[in-house]
Simulated scan of single mutants.
Amino acid sequence: MNVRKGQLSDAGQLCGLSEQLGYAAEEQQMHERLSRILKDADHAVYVMDDEEHGVVGWAHVHGRHLLESDPFAEIGGLVVDDRHQRMGIGKKLMRACEGWAREAGYGIVRVRSGAQRKEAHEFYKGIGYEHVKAQQVFNLNLNRE
């Protein structure tokens, strides 16, 4: 298994992995999203590629530039196939994202994780991340009539 940069040809497999987290997407949707992200130098996608099983995990990192804080890198998503968890894949993907952030000049990597994802919280703490705040997220659907 090896970590490599994501490619458009990975879109189908990224869909299946995203669905395991509860984020269903059609392959065309994922292809469009991935295409947009891969063209943006302030984003990176890494995948764990297994010769036998194909893509078994992915991570997305991107730069965040806000008025209230210094720029930082944020993990947009991390998922490892259920059958391949606890094998060090998530940690390797996170380290790839951290390397990208370091090279891009970011001094902090931030990850947000839903309150219900207790195992994920323990994973992040276990690889050196510290819990800094709790928050709620609000959306306004602009497509509603």
Rank of each mutant, 00 (worst) to 15 (best):
G57H: 07
H131K: 10
A11Y: 00
L14P: 02
W58M: 09
G126Y: 00
M1Q: 06
V111N: 05
G76R: 04
R86S: 11
H131T: 02
L93G: 07
G76M: 00
L21P: 07
R86N: 11
M87K: 13
D42V: 05
L93N: 02
E52Y: 04
R102Q: 10
N2I: 07
V111A: 13
Q28H: 10
A59M: 09
K91E: 15
A41H: 13
Y23P: 05
E145H: 07
A41T: 10
A44R: 15
L142Y: 09
K39H: 09
G99P: 11
D42T: 15
E130P: 00
N2E: 08
A120M: 06
V79L: 05
V132S: 11
G22F: 01
K125Y: 04
Q136A: 07
F72L: 12
V61R: 11
R36Y: 09
G12N: 06
K92A: 11
A134D: 15
L140G: 09
A25Q: 15
G114C: 02
V47S: 12
M48R: 14
Y106P: 06
V47G: 01
M1L: 03
L17K: 13
M87R: 15
V47N: 02
W58A: 08
L8M: 04
R83T: 08
K5R: 11
K118F: 05
A115C: 09
G16W: 06
Q116D: 12
S69T: 14
D40K: 08
W100G: 14
R102F: 01
L140A: 12
A96M: 10
K5E: 14
D82A: 13
C15W: 05
K125I: 07
E98T: 12
W100C: 06
H65C: 11
Y106K: 05
R110C: 04
R112A: 05
C97K: 00
L67W: 08
M48T: 13
S69I: 07
W58D: 06
L67F: 13
K5V: 08
R110Q: 13
S35E: 10
E74I: 07
E51I: 10
R83F: 05
W58Y: 15
Q29V: 04
H65V: 14
S69V: 13
Q29C: 04
G54T: 03
A59Q: 07
R102A: 09
G105H: 11
D81W: 02
